[in-house]
Design a protein around this nucleic acid. Sequence first.
DNA 1: GAATTGATGTGAAACAAATCACAAAAAACA
DNA 2: TGTTTTTTGTGATTTGTTTCACATCAATTC
Lengths: 227, 227
Amino acid sequence: MKQITKNIIKNSLKRIFLYRACLVRLKLMGVEKVFSYTLANETGVTSDQVRKDFSEFCIKGNKRGGYNINDLLEKMEKLFHRNKDNNIVLIGMGNMGLALSKYSKFVQRHMNIVATFDIDPFKQKMRSGIPVYSMSRLKEIIDRFSVKVAIVAVPEISAQEVTDELIRHGISGIVNFAPVLLKVSPDVIINNVNLCDELESVIYYVHKQIKVNGLKNLELLYRDMKY
Amino acid sequence: MKQITKNIIKNSLKRIFLYRACLVRLKLMGVEKVFSYTLANETGVTSDQVRKDFSEFCIKGNKRGGYNINDLLEKMEKLFHRNKDNNIVLIGMGNMGLALSKYSKFVQRHMNIVATFDIDPFKQKMRSGIPVYSMSRLKEIIDRFSVKVAIVAVPEISAQEVTDELIRHGISGIVNFAPVLLKVSPDVIINNVNLCDELESVIYYVHKQIKVNGLKNLELLYRDMKY
DNA sequence: GAATTGATGTGAAACAAATCACAAAAAACA
DNA sequence: TGTTTTTTGTGATTTGTTTCACATCAATTC
């Protein structure tokens, strides 16, 4: 049964990513152990929250001894399946698709875009070291590389159709850059990234702040914020 | 006082954007009025939530009569300051910056990237109809176009420096694509978009689901989701 | 024009997330 | 070895968000 499926990414998971980025930095600096308040300071949360988040993801430290950075990173790698490579396909080689296909951070994090697809034959040539195929070869590639996750960067008009095809061929998670709510069965993981909304949100809060600052009352602004 | 400033975008605001997108679609189809449950169905939430969200943003309908789409859209335009154009600057014309500078949806929503900036002289030519300047002209452009909001798409190594400069020149809201937590004073609005994290989140949930499905117990998965 | 119907709007209730507070454990030191 | 110190881990509490339930209003019907 197809239905609108909401983003399900929890804030606690996003914070775990922050902690990890911080740990990687600290490790590069030669640091070997951290305390919850170290991570808290670096990421702008409280030490309580760091520990609660760790607890949620079953990450344990040492009483009084804090956390060993290597242990912590290893635990997280396992948690995020970074010990094995994750093969991704990318659909739509327009401006955004092209940029994403060239984004080097994915590879650094063991997320490999193994192939990209576009209906436009003129785009079906390599422009970023990754082959661009026609949609007819989608199933073949998904099967060959055991792909489970896809990035959708097609125009909104074709996003649903492309999504249906992806799911039919075994994809079960999608990062969707098209500004539409995809209708899928509830067992498919969808994460929508809407660039306009992200920008417009900032504009909204900036205008609000200007208005509130005019009233010399920052409390009012903060009251209406999330954190 | 500089500090790590968290994303403050509320879920209720994001839902308002969903409702609006839906309203625009319905209007194009010639529909003139909607009920809370219409919007709810289209966006995958409950009608209660639609009404509560409207209430939060002081949007009123007509008892029994539902909502007039034109009124609703007009109210939202005002709420989001779309009656006047919003001028944006974009810093960093790498792959992502270039893609963003070509993203036509921004203009459709009255968000105009009036200029882009890059330190690399080779990138300082027009590649997308928008001029690419050197950073030395930042203040001049910000002042001339009364820019309040910027997009940061520079490498993470220079993101903080660029941010400091932007704020010094009067920017008070930033959409940040660099995978670093920017340190700014609390009156600056920051919205981080971390592409790796977005993708990795999906991978995490997909793997989790596979594990849970193996146990033939979807409940476990849903319990851990945000909704 | 009274009764009925169907939608909004909003307090109250239920649920979820973040913060607080402190017991428990381990290291340091006397 | 016993005491103190420091930090984790987690129940208890608070705060925030979503859902529920229903009073309220306006259109429609009789």
